[in-house]
Design a protein around this nucleic acid. Structure first.
Lengths: 215, 215, 215, 215
DNA sequence: CATGAATGAGTATTCATTCAT
DNA sequence: TATGAATGAATACTCATTCAT
């Protein structure tokens, strides 16, 4: 009569997911086999399918969890009193420290071209983060702190792209000092948002684009 | 006992490489099988190993050829009367139009973490491009057209990173207008290099940072 | 420490058996999994083994129940005032309407060659039906209504075989009108049993070969 | 430069097919694994797929070959101077001697309900054999040797069904004397075709329904 | 009586690679 | 130079069955 215990089930699922993530980080999306994942999770091959219906489902769940984590952290940063810029930068500063994570992310990005499920997950998460950035920019524009000519959507996409740029950079040259790059990117974002260097009020913007509470 | 004709041999090798690239673009690095490549190249499976000692060798050769192409085109742009900026932008503007190429590139980037051969190729090509950018920046700084505080290596890496950002952006949202993003990136690079955004003349930099020396 | 209630137990067993039969009809003997059966019966996988010791046991029980049903109906027809012929024909007329049942039956027949348990069940039920037919024939011969040269065992087997022929026919061409075939088979049986085709009175046999004794 | 030798290829294919058939006869359609088939054929698991694209393709090829054999032999019998009846009976007499073959056949018949490929093969072969029988009947009717009221299509199907009946009979009771049954079936067919026992000229037909050359 | 967790051998199939000709 | 035959380990996944609770 003992009914299913959803807490235990979910816990095991998360354990397996964590094991899977370690495998994917180690061997890549297609390099990691279900056998490896089972071994890492300490379960039998058949048991894996008690929790996930396919390897693709594991990949999807892992990708979703990972991006949700990033997205959530980002949201916290933005709403938690920081500026868009600092939120962006905290993200930029965290990821590149882990090239394995970056590599896995790029595999997911590549995968999204062939796997519609992956595309849905990735595009969805990506869009929500960009929407958040765009919203903050609009808010800043309303306050006169961000130059009004800037298209919020485009700027959001560009800023978002810098996160991936940072990841790429860390893979292009693992030994370099990523701090310098992020500092430069910070400068770039700062200037982008500022009420335009060419048009009079340049210095104000640099310290302005924060305060965004909205949701 | 026929001696091999090195010219014919090399020609066939290139044909196979081209076929392989089509397969990799279509199905991904691990998704494309040697059987597919042979079919695409119109040769028998055994014959493939007459030209390449393994699938990894094909991937390496393909990656090398692809990056050499990019690098060479970039060099042409820089030396061919254009500015670093325009060279960078022509690269930025070309790639994202082809998400398949972008995806393949990111797969190569990810692969470089696990495959030392791939790492050697990718890091080498990446470094030589960044060196070129850095050199141009130094030249510009000597001429007083680029702000002197800028660390050329760091700036080069940042600019280089924007190429990958553009690729990533095109995969994050395939439907968007990539032109707008590249225009924004162009503006960013422009401001980064210009003697100083705060000091009015940003446009000069655009046509200045050219003419560097030989490789 | 509850004692089991044999009535409830048997009821549940029958429910599972019914569920299993639906699965076998849908997916075939080896195509239906125990998981499917459990789902169809609304029980957990472990619980299945409380009622049956193996999948083979389920198949055996299902086969036995099915054949017992056929056999019983047949007996009813024979004893219930009808003739052997009409009993046979009612069976013939009912089954082919359901190709799924026919297919399942043939799978059981094939299985009987490899599975001794299945062979025992199938041969037993088959024999008892044929014995019944043979007995009726003997009775008819004693009455002078069925030609005396006919070997009752052989004739019984032949008549019995026509049932399977009807099933086979319906699978060979699902779209055809099975009524025509059964009418023809009826005619054949009629002629076979009649005192002699050559001696004019064939119609008498039709209503004659009834009334036999108990099992 | 050695081009493919289609004869050797086909020979090997037939060898594998023969091995597969032995496995299917031994273990059944779903009971025989590709691993078993490979072992029986003396090839590696991967090599099987050099000759067949799937297990289903093997089954289909085997089924087709088997039915083609039956059909061809039947055609020979009919055109080779014998009567329809003797052709039918030679088929009837051959198969039941091998219950394994009968069992396999019934598995194919059952499979045809779920597998459209199998249905196509089986229905096609079945139809062509029935067409042949019907044609012979029509010829006999034109000659006045077969009763004219008989619908040739229906009669053909019924006669065809008797083949399967014989197979079924041999599985229902493997120990019995199949000769007696076939003799009885012969009698049935004979009477069916004869110009009707009830309507005057009965004896002629019995020795008549031969001579059929037509195609 | 009943659950769902867990097993592990087994499934068809793929694939990079080698070999004989 | 070139072929297609052949390999065998590996792949994702299934399934009847057992076990702890």
């Amino acid at each position: 009569m003992r009914k299913i215990d959803p807490i235990k089930h979910e816990k095991k699922r998360q354990e397996i997911l964590a094991a899977a993530k370690r495998c994917f980080l180690r061997s890549g999306l297609s390099g990691a086999s279900t056998a490896q994942i089972c071994a890492e999770a300490g379960i039998s091959p058949g048991h894996l399918y008690h929790y996930f219906e396919s390897k693709d489902a594991i990949i999807a769940a892992m990708a979703d969890a990972r991006l949700e984590g990033t997205s959530e952290r980002f949201k916290q940063d933005v709403y938690g009193g920081g500026s868009v810029i600092s939120a962006l930068l905290s993200e930029i500063e965290e990821q590149p420290a882990n090239p394995a994570q970056s590599a896995l992310f790029f595999e997911m990005l590549a995968e999204s071209r062939r796997n519609p499920e992956m595309a849905k997950i990735l595009h969805g998460r990506s869009r929500s983060m960009r929407n958040l950035i765009a919203e903050v920019i609009r808010h800043g524009q309303a306050q006169g702190e961000i130059q009004p000519e800037l298209d919020p959507e485009t700027a959001a996409m560009a800023i978002f792209g810098l996160m991936d740029a940072t990841k790429a950079v860390s893979l292009h040259d693992p030994k370099q000092d990523i701090k310098k790059i992020t500092a430069l990117f910070k400068l770039l974002v700062d200037r982008l948002l500022s009420s335009d260097a060419k048009t009079a009020k340049p210095s104000r913007a640099r310290k302005s684009a924060q305060r965004s509470r909205s949701a």
